[in-house]
């Protein structure tokens, strides 16, 4: 919690409420900020209830229900962003960003560069990724790495209520398109959040647990599984350092490399597919920039390269858990 400035009171709130507070505070602070998305308004208040109460507070003009038209949601947000507004678009499930991919990858990401910096695209795209709730292949993917591959996009992956609020406020105040990845299983999780105003800069990793023997770089829900694994291994006297990058673009290489220098061992855990995924990029970065500090091969914990299956035992099998993290740690320690 090192980024919290001041001595203000903390209270425990959910990840969902932390995101809502960030939206509410920024909409109050800046009247160019507005929300658009499917079922985010007063009738439904968001598929995950993140926008609860916001339409009542700010009206239907600033909390806009849209048709089921993802391409138009993002395209419209892009058009508004380049003409003086600060849209925050919600895509109900991360899987559905695929329907808006041209607007995200070819338009939002490239306008600033392609037009020679004439325009900025201050656009936040909020969307939940991740599995674990038995809704199968069209509503459970983790596509964060797709967006890491598009220069011009920023990618945030908050794992706690505190990080979610602070990063979202920074994202809204920023000047670039950002994919703000949320995780369905994190919405009800609770954590301490200051009562006072605060932001968290992008590109600053957070060491969620200190340790001397091995570094786990983990993202989103995997951070919590990594912390559980660290607690279990602590009983055996092993010190596991859990590093949460918090944003994948920009990536805080220094904090990751410093941790690897200290521990000499690296496991990377993320919920997306292994091939060309989040873990692949971080492994490649460490191999390229810090291989001399490693005392053992880098190991990755990720999903196998399959769609997310429906049936509970099948889904459980593909989504990595604490047991797999510990097994992987034991391979190199």
């Amino acid at each position: 919690m090192s980024m919290h400035n001041g001595d203000g009171k903390m209270r425990v709130i959910t990840y969902r409420d932390a995101i809502r507070e960030a939206l509410l505070e920024e909409m109050k602070r800046d009247n160019t900020v507005f929300l658009l998305g499917e079922d985010i308004g007063r009738c439904w208040e968001g598929a995950f209830k993140v926008t609860k109460g916001l339409a009542e507070e700010f009206g239907d003009e600033r909390v806009r229900d849209t048709p089921i038209s993802e391409s138009a949601i993002i395209g419209t947000a892009v058009g508004a962003a380049i003409t003086g507004m600060k849209p925050i678009a919600e895509i109900m499930f991360g899987d559905l960003t695929t329907l808006a991919m041209d607007q995200i990858a070819n338009q939002a990401a490239k306008i600033h560069y392609m037009f020679g910096a004439q325009a900025k695209v201050p656009l936040v795209i909020r969307t939940p990724f991740g599995g674990g709730v038995n809704i199968a292949a069209h509503h459970s993917q983790s596509l964060e790495a797709w967006f890491m591959h598009i220069p011009g996009l920023l990618v945030a992956v908050p794992s706690t209520a505190y990080d979610a609020k602070g990063l979202l406020k920074t994202a809204i105040q920023g000047s670039n398109p950002i994919i703000f990845c949320e995780h369905k299983l994190l919405y009800p999780t609770e954590g301490p959040v200051p009562e006072e105003d605060y932001t968290i800069p992008l590109g600053i990793a957070d060491i969620k647990n200190e340790g001397e023997d091995l570094t786990i770089v983990a993202t989103m829900f995997m951070v919590h599984k990594a912390l559980n694994a660290a607690r279990m291994l602590k009983k055996e006297g092993l010190g596991i350092e859990v590093v949460d990058p918090r944003t994948l673009v920009p990536l805080d290489k220094k904090t990751i490399i410093d941790s690897v220098k200290k521990t000499g061992r690296l496991v990377i855990a993320a919920e997306d597919c292994k091939t060309a995924g989040v873990t692949a990029e971080i492994a490649a970065m460490v191999a390229e920039e810090a291989i001399d500090y490693l005392d053992a091969p880098i190991r990755r914990v990720a999903e196998p390269d399959t769609p997310i299956p429906f049936s509970p035992p099948l889904e459980k099998y593909v989504i990595p858990d604490e047991r797999r993290i510990i097994k992987t740690i034991r391979e190199i320690i």
């Binding site: 507005f34 138009a72 395209g75 419209t76 058009g79 508004a80 380049i82 507004m85 041209d102 338009q107």
Partner: peptide
Amino acid sequence: VVGAGIPIATGAGLSIKLR
């Protein structure tokens, strides 16, 4: 990208309305 400008124009229109 053929057709990509259409929702962007809609967004500029929304911006005008909101402003």
